[in-house]
Amino acid sequence: MGLLDRLSGRKARDEPQVPESVAVPEPVPSLPSTSPHSHALRDVSPNSTLLASAALSAPQGRLYNPYEGLAAQVGTTKHVFRLPDGPEFVFEEEASVRRRDWTQHLQFYCGGGYLAGGVVGVATGLYKFAFDKPEIVTDTLKLKTNRLLNTAGSFARPFSNSCGILGLYFSGFESLFVYQLEPYGLPDNVSTLLAGFASGALFRLPRGPRQAMVAGVVGVVGAGGITALRKLFPTL
């Protein structure tokens, strides 16, 4: 019946009557989104306005182009990345750490002192072997090698053990002074000097109080050298 009604000019009863005075609004063409997330997966050239505004709001850093000098050969679009000037950390706790913890401090100075003492001992043994002539001249290579190893080992063992113990004392006292006295406003350099004095005094304490005081002064001098080296090597 709908087809016959249309051919005969009659309107269907169920069709809604639209008044002539009401205008149906035309659909507005959708504009491209200007949100920054809409361009996240698009390959935009670095000269676009969007990247220029993003570069102004982004933190300053060093620009890096991985295709520098190769764009013409490989035929890729030039991309420029902004690399940060300082180190980046995953967790905020790592960014707030200014020094090693006491266990890492202990391993660093104890192991470093042992190795340094061993190197000094071997060097002293080589000097002793080169300039001190034995009472009985040995011409065979095996006897000379044996005398060289014995001389270097006799100096390397006490030197390495003593320096390792000093590193153990120094790292323990410095960690103690830093964590206990830093809340009262004590500078780190003062804690290092106090740790040097306490380490030297404790190392020589079995030989008497006078020897302990002299060794404490020598420890302060050594701690002052470490403080000066930390300005050049902050990881020391």
Rank of each mutant, 00 (worst) to 15 (best):
G69I: 08
Q17W: 13
Q104M: 06
G200V: 02
G125F: 05
T192I: 15
D132H: 11
G111L: 00
T145G: 15
A23V: 01
A152P: 10
G172A: 08
V122Q: 07
S53Y: 09
Y127I: 12
V119Y: 08
G86T: 14
Q107K: 12
L168Y: 07
A95P: 01
S160M: 05
P206C: 10
F108M: 04
S154Q: 10
E88S: 11
G118M: 13
G222Q: 09
G185M: 06
L126F: 12
R100N: 10
R13A: 08
A198D: 06
F89Q: 04
V28N: 08
S171Y: 02
T145L: 15
L4N: 15
P36Q: 01
E88V: 12
V22W: 01
R98T: 12
T235M: 06
Q104V: 00
F197G: 10
R62E: 05
P16W: 09
R10W: 12
F131H: 13
V137G: 07
D188V: 15
A95C: 00
A54V: 04
A12W: 11
F129L: 09
G118R: 14
F159P: 03
L202R: 03
C163E: 10
V137K: 15
H105A: 13
L126W: 08
K144S: 00
T227P: 12
Y114E: 03
